[in-house]
């Protein structure tokens, strides 16, 4: 029997597999397909203070190694999330959930975290300072160490729950960003969010996405994620949640060897709705294949 348990910021999880925010809604779509309690946890849809429709369509484009999205943080707003989404989530998921929050100002991040902090089902906050698809918020906090520190300090003051900061790869040094948020009081970091990209429609000679640019995700990102998790592991001592192009149990192990304590699965859920369940179920046999008895033994093991 192998041991798949990991502890992320003081909370023990049965396994390190976490569907990533924006690919798993509030869980209940997937609960119709399989028992989502097999997951370590999941990170729910990025939540803002006010309801957001997001960007105009088309919001989706494709490339050989994955997809581009420019959804733009569509969500019903924190009040509706608490009143409508979380009660439905509670019926199908019985573990601490990761609350992904976003904002367009420091005050907005604080408002959302303050409101969600009262919800007992929330185990961790994942603060998204890395959304490339909104203007004047999201990634603009994640590319400037000073702005990132401000968000972290402000959020830190209003919750005792673990605060994980989701970082963007669209920076020169992700290690410097990780150091900045660690110094400001973050309990962990998750990386990487999507990579800013763009595609053109050759017939129309115009961008394919209505938003012009979008975030790239999918298997093509795995090497970038491995490299960045590796660098951040060398730079900080807080736990790392690794993500980017993960679609197999092997990918989970690779990111953990690079330094991740837990691993998120994003785009894979969209092309195979059972992807995260398959990863959970194949993790033990994959561990055996590579002679791993205890998953925590391999965190950062490649260093």
């Amino acid at each position: 029997m192998v041991d798949t348990r990991v502890t992320l910021c003081g909370i023990e999880m049965d396994n390190p597999v976490i569907p990533a925010s924006g690919t798993f809604g509030f869980g209940y779509e997937f609960a119709e397909l399989y028992d989502i309690n097999c997951l370590g946890t999941f990170s729910f849809k990025g939540t803002t203070a006010e309801p957001r429709f997001g960007n105009a369509t088309p919001r989706i484009a494709e490339f050989e190694g994955g997809l581009l999205n420019a959804v733009g943080l569509q969500n019903p707003g924190v009040d509706a999330v608490i009143a409508k989404e979380l009660p439905k989530l509670r019926e199908v998921f019985h573990k601490p959930v990761m609350a992904n929050v976003s904002g367009f100002s420091v005050e907005e991040y604080v408002t959302v975290v303050e409101k969600l902090d009262t919800c007992p089902e929330i185990g961790w906050f994942e603060v998204n300072i890395s959304c490339p698809n909104v203007h004047g918020g999201g990634m603009s906090f994640g590319t400037d160490p000073k702005a990132a520190e401000e968000v972290v300090c402000a959020v830190r003051r209003v919750t005792k729950k673990p605060v994980i900061i989701k970082l963007t790869p669209n920076v020169t040094s992700i290690a410097d960003m990780a150091k900045a948020v660690e110094a400001a009081g973050a309990d962990g970091v998750s990386l990487i969010n999507t990579v800013l990209g763009m595609r053109l429609d050759l017939k129309k000679r115009k961008p394919l996405l209505a938003n012009t640019t979008g975030g790239m995700s999918g298997p093509a990102l795995l090497p970038l994620a491995v490299r960045m998790v590796w660098q951040v592991y060398n730079a900080v001592s807080v736990p790392i949640v690794g993500l980017g192009g993960v679609s197999t149990a092997e990918d989970v192990i690779e990111l953990m060897l690079a330094g991740a304590t837990a691993v998120q699965v994003g785009s894979a859920n969209l092309v195979d709705p059972w992807a995260a369940e398959k990863i959970v179920h194949t993790l033990p046999e994959t561990m055996e294949k590579y002679g791993i008895k205890k998953l925590t033994d391999i965190i950062g093991g490649a260093h």
């Binding site: 690919t23 798993f24 809604g25 429709f53 997001g54 369509t57 919001r59 569509q74 969209l270 709705p273």
Partner: peptide
């Protein structure tokens, strides 16, 4: 018709506004 990501309601890629909400 709309460009879709997942096709089963997870990604919010093909949202539209209606009189009864998104």
């Amino acid at each position: 018709e709309e460009r879709m990501g997942c096709g089963f309601g997870a990604c919010m890629g093909c949202s539209c506004k209606t009189k009864y909400g998104n």
